[in-house]
């Protein structure tokens, strides 16, 4: 993922700070990675390279660890985080189809973030409402009995709400005020 302007500096300063707090030995690798993720929301390649340098191990060794643990993300979280449930019930009823629909529509794969950083897509094990499988959680909102058509609807609603927000600021607000006065 391409870094945005200024992100490189933030990563370098944050990771340097974290590296300063720990002894540079391999036992501290996972705590370091967790802190990086807490601070930045994900573990960028640059951070992995800096940590690898300080521990004097190949960067690919750190990459092994980061890809091993589900907890650690390789991509920055999007503005809207989409979590597709792949628990037993959702899996049986076709959760994969829903995940595939999102992947197709957003043109990213599971675990990735769209180029404009608007959406990130991930799978989760179970969100605890198997009765309405297949389930999708978008930010904090749970959506049940999802179909591929509904996937289109969900994404469309974000496009619309964004447009509306823009419109509200420009046009709708005066109208609302007008109504209030009446």
């Amino acid at each position: 993922m391409e870094l945005l302007e200024g992100e490189k500096e933030v990563i370098i300063s944050q990771v340097s700070e974290i590296l300063g707090k720990h002894k540079h030995n391999c036992e501290n690798l996972v705590p370091m990675l967790q802190e990086v993720q807490n601070q930045l929301g994900y573990v960028p390649e640059l951070a992995m390279e800096m940590i690898a340098d300080s521990l004097e191990v190949p960067a690919v060794a750190v990459y092994s660890i980061v890809t091993f643990y589900n907890q650690l993300r390789l991509n920055p979280p999007g503005d809207h985080q989409i979590r597709v449930c792949m628990g037993t019930a959702c899996h049986m009823i076709g959760g994969q189809i829903i995940l595939n629909s999102f992947e197709r529509r957003l043109q990213i794969e599971e675990g990735e973030t769209t180029e404009d950083r608007k959406f990130s897509l991930e799978r989760v094990a179970c969100v605890g409402c198997c009765a309405i499988a297949p389930v999708v959680v978008i930010d904090d909102l749970v959506d049940g009995k999802v179909t591929p058509t509904r996937v289109d609807g969900i994404l469309l609603s974000f496009e619309n709400s964004n447009n509306n927000e823009g419109k509200k600021e420009q046009e709708q607000k005066p109208v609302e005020r007008g109504e209030g006065q009446e």
Binding site: V57, P58, A59, V60, A61, Y63, S64, T67, F68
Partner: peptide, 10 residues
């Protein structure tokens, strides 16, 4: 003694 390859994923 290069460190170019490793395992990834699970």
């Amino acid at each position: 003694r290069v460190g170019a390859i490793g395992f990834s994923q699970r």
